[in-house]
Amino acid sequence: MLAKRIIPCLDVKDGRTVKGVNFVDLRDAGDPVELAWQYSRQGADELVFLDITATHERRKTTAELVKAVARQVNIPFTIGGGINELADADVLLHSGADKISINSAAVRNPGLINQMAEAFGIQFVVVAVDTRHVDGKNYVHLNGGRLKTDIETEDWIKEAESRGAGEILLTSMDHDGTKNGFDCDFLKKINDKLSIPLIASGGAGNMQHFVEVFQESNVDAALAASVFHYGEILIPELKDELRKQGIEVR
C-alpha cells in the first residue's frame, strides 16, 4: 500500500526562505537548501517550494534554487510560483525539479495544463487550487486567495484532472492559518471524485489534525508550513502518532 505523505512547504523569495524557522540545529534558517536537507533527514516524504520572487531575475533565481536543492536533497520536490508558460517549466525540469505546480496561470489559461502534461508527462504537473466558501458554495480564488472567481472549485478540479493534471494541491483559504484543522468534509468530497492524488493544505495545528484528514478524507498527502517551521510538530513524532492510529506512513 502507498504510504500517506507528509509535505512541508517552504516560501522562498530571492533565494531565501521567507517565514521564520525555529530549528535548533540550523546554521542558517534562511537557507532553503539546508532547511530542505534537514526536513528530508527528519522523514519528510516530499517538499514543496513556493517561490514568491517578483523581480525580472525570477526565472534565473528559481532555477538556481531548484538546482541547489536537487544537488543536496534525496527526496522528491515540487516548485511553484510564477510559472506561466511551457518555457518556465522546461527550465525547472532540467534544473532537477520533480514536479512543478501551477495555480492562477492555469485558471487564466487552462490549455497550459494540457501543454505541460503533453510536454513533460502528467506526473510533472501539479495543479494548485485555492478555495474559499462563499454563500454555501466553494469558489476558486486567485492571487493568494484574495481574488474570487466565478468558477466552482469542484468543477475546476475535475477539469484540471481531465486536462492532464497529475496531482491536485487543494488549499482551503478558510482554514489556512487558523490551526483549527483541515477542511476534511470538502477534501473528502473532492477526493472521492478524483482518480489522481490529492494533497490537503490549510489548517494544520496539531498532530490530531493530520490523523483526522487521513482518516476522514483519505487524501494522499497533507501539507503544512508553520507548524513544521516553528517546531510545533516534529515529523518523526507525527509519523509515530499516525502509525499508532493505523495510518501507513514511511
Binding site: M1, L2, A3, R5, D45, I122, Q123, G166, E167, L194, S195, I196, P197, D220, A221, R250
Partner: peptide, 11 residues
C-alpha cells in the same frame, strides 16, 4: 481500482 499514476512511497 487504486489511483493512477502510482505516485509516492511504497514498500
Amino acid at each position: 481500482t487504486e489511483k493512477v499514476p502510482h505516485m509516492g512511497w511504497n514498500k
